[in-house]
Design a protein around this nucleic acid. Sequence first.
DNA 1: CAAAATTGAGAACCCCATTTCCGCTCTACC
DNA 2: GGTAGAGCGGAAATGGGGTTCTCAATTTTG
Lengths: 217, 217
Amino acid sequence: MSSPSEEPAWRQRAVERSIKAAKVRAEQRVQRFLDAAQVIIDEKGTTDFTVQEVVDRSRQSLRSFYLHFDGKHELLLALFEDALNRTADQIRAAASGQKEPLDRLRVAVQLLFELCRPDPDARRPLFTDFAPQLLVSHPTEVKVAHTPVLAVFTELLADAEEASLLSPEVKPRRTAALIMQTVMFNAQSSGSPDDETANPLTADEIWDFCANGITNH
Amino acid sequence: MSSPSEEPAWRQRAVERSIKAAKVRAEQRVQRFLDAAQVIIDEKGTTDFTVQEVVDRSRQSLRSFYLHFDGKHELLLALFEDALNRTADQIRAAASGQKEPLDRLRVAVQLLFELCRPDPDARRPLFTDFAPQLLVSHPTEVKVAHTPVLAVFTELLADAEEASLLSPEVKPRRTAALIMQTVMFNAQSSGSPDDETANPLTADEIWDFCANGITNH
DNA sequence: CAAAATTGAGAACCCCATTTCCGCTCTACC
DNA sequence: GGTAGAGCGGAAATGGGGTTCTCAATTTTG
């Protein structure tokens, strides 16, 4: 009786109009939570905040928080997705500065590497803290969040393939995922650039590794 | 007066004898905790156990647990180290079955990949759960725990280098770390083999990636 | 304006790691 | 052989944090 297929269009529209206001309000509240969380993260340089802090900062209530989010993890995922979207844009922009497909790819790899590297000064614990944390608790959602960055690399690889710059067995889509994860994870466990330990992996090294492999041919 | 330099050797020995028994007892208790934890992990196929469970299983007490371990993380690290030691041995053994240096390396890469891949059937959540979890909380210790596996790959790469099979710019030690992490991390986020999703990365693919890179040369 | 839905403020609940308290037992040392 | 002390089991207590619940105030809707 109330199946969508039997709902007259006019009713749909009426309901929607009625709901729109509420929807806007809800979105505003959600945004306030997100903004508050982002501010806290920027301040503390870590994702070790409590839900209570976010609630206080956004001048709302716990009740409201759990009304809009399924839990803390959804908040984290939302922030993570935002960050990855921005990152994807940033990488795309940087890559577009190069003419040659392989140069574009190189720039993309090196930038992603620098962005994911843990740097105590730069305030971006999204990758160094969120990623591993969420990867444990919600691997599927994390993969989805990676999509925009993955898309950039897929494009870049497709371009390179079209220019016959890649080995014939390289499949752009699959290799894009391979490269992205290789770069991101290796960046995270390479000490920060100013670390004195023996392992400050460089962006060049990782690019050489991805591009040329290790064999002597 | 009680400085070590003034302690006569006979006293040192006497004390040591006296302490040895206690030490053995302590080691046995520690081992019972470790065994209990391992059993629970094997049963549940996850590392989501509580300290209380381990205590009950080992028929000891919470008090005793915190007397022997600084906290849950030490227990996890201990298990993780054990697992990585066994893994290193296993890889070394498998690799030794091959004659050619590059074949040994390939076998090592492929085996490590399979071992780190999340397989619901195989009971080894050490890599899929521990690693990310500990990497967040105790990155330094995790790196130390990786040492034995890293050593295997360093040897294999050194062999290959000696046989002039590697590109000249490849540094065995650094590249070993690069390969190990690339393999481990990519394995963890590649769906299990029987997964229907589009991304069941294969051991061959990751080997090709590491060995040959992506460029067309 | 009245009914209904949304919020706020805060207490309450739960899970779990970690600590603490109280006896008991076994070891070490005289 | 006996006694002080360390080691230990059992269980209650503490504490941090996420999540839920209660109730009254407020806003939105009709």
